[in-house]
Write a protein that binds this DNA or RNA. Structure first.
Lengths: 193, 193
DNA sequence: GTAGAAAGTTGATCTGTATCATGAAATAAC
DNA sequence: GTTATTTCATGATACAGATCAACTTTCTAC
């Protein structure tokens, strides 16, 4: 169950067997089948979840009831509404499973306890969050300054797995485009080749 | 010199006097006068810089030579091209001073050394980066889903200091808007009152 | 395998924001 | 204080991408 998890953590920090055992104890596991929700917008996000298997997406529902995909997470990624998880405020996002998934989940209290008991996990998360910031900064530049086609091409370049694994309408939403626009963008790219 | 710095760090973690002394030794200080650059796009970002005093902005120059403001940093904020700082790759951003500024700077090597010698600093940065992620996620949703007016209003709401302290054209760039658009948006808001 | 639903395509039209252009106001430089 | 430079405002126009609509293809469930 913890294979993907530890292989991921060990890429960033070293852990003794004792530490591994300690860490394991803080997590609970959960299976989610396709279309099931992990989190509903408006509720508190009680867990950070590591994806051992499967694929999930986070999305935000606006006042007009339109879904805006904010993130995808598959094997080796974490997912949660961090804001809600940390502060205990209501989540502004929902999370559901796109494929049948297996998760390792840790609560806010256990997260605190774990980092205090195994301080090197602070380092792991510091590095993890650092990388996440880099990604989000890149997405922000892209979102503010690129054309629809440039946004798509950069995504295809930097994150080909998203293109392969997800339906086009969700990719469009993730890029902040209308599905029709993405369809046309892809057509133009194909025509030019 | 370290007043703002430690008052900021101590809001997130506790430090002994000995730890403070250790930490201080890793930093160098630097004064920057208005319009001076801290970092030029294309060069490696050697430091993370904490702003003790003043105001800086980060921006990205696109292929057409147009500046896109990505961040502001004033008293109590960190600034750097994190991607470049961490990986040693060329920076994709420049940073310059909008007001005369005083900085505390730490190199990548000293950053590593400091977190190893004072592990609780990993925790500080973990929390810092967590918060930064929340902010960037909010900006991403805003950028993808809000109208020009909504973007401006949310910024005014969540970050009034930016509105007061920075010229309108830089705010427009930060929001990914043409300066003319922001001018019109502000006019409409004023008219409606 | 078939029916129904969801996702994707393509065309026509509309609209928010960018761009271009010019003048006014504010700031900075001497 | 005057001049030069930068920032801001306002109007006219252009265009990328949204929206609306109809149709086709692909999935899904039984």
């Amino acid at each position: 169950m913890f294979e993907v998890f530890f292989s991921h953590v060990l890429k960033k920090v070293s852990l003794s067997e004792a530490e591994k055992t300690t860490i394991k104890a803080f997590f609970i596991s959960k299976k989610l089948s396709k279309k099931q929700h992990l989190l509903h917008q408006g509720y508190v996000c009680k867990y950070m979840s590591f994806v051992e298997k499967g694929l999930l997406r986070s999305y935000h529902l606006d006042e007009n009831g339109i879904q805006h995909v904010t993130m995808f997470a598959w094997e080796g990624w974490w997912t949660s509404d961090i804001q809600s998880f940390l502060t205990g405020e209501a989540a502004t996002q929902s999370i559901d499973a796109i494929e049948d998934s297996e998760l390792l989940m840790i609560s806010q209290a256990d997260f605190e306890a774990m980092t205090l008991e195994v301080p090197i996990m602070d380092r792991y998360f510091r590095i993890l969050f650092q990388n996440s910031i880099v990604t989000k900064e890149r997405r922000l530049v892209s979102s503010n300054t690129f054309t629809a086609e440039e946004k798509y091409l950069q995504l295809a370049e930097s994150n080909p797995e998203i293109i392969q694994r997800l339906p086009q309408n969700l990719i469009a939403s993730y890029l902040g485009l209308a599905p029709e626009t993405l369809s046309r963008v892809r057509k133009n790219i194909a025509l030019r080749k």
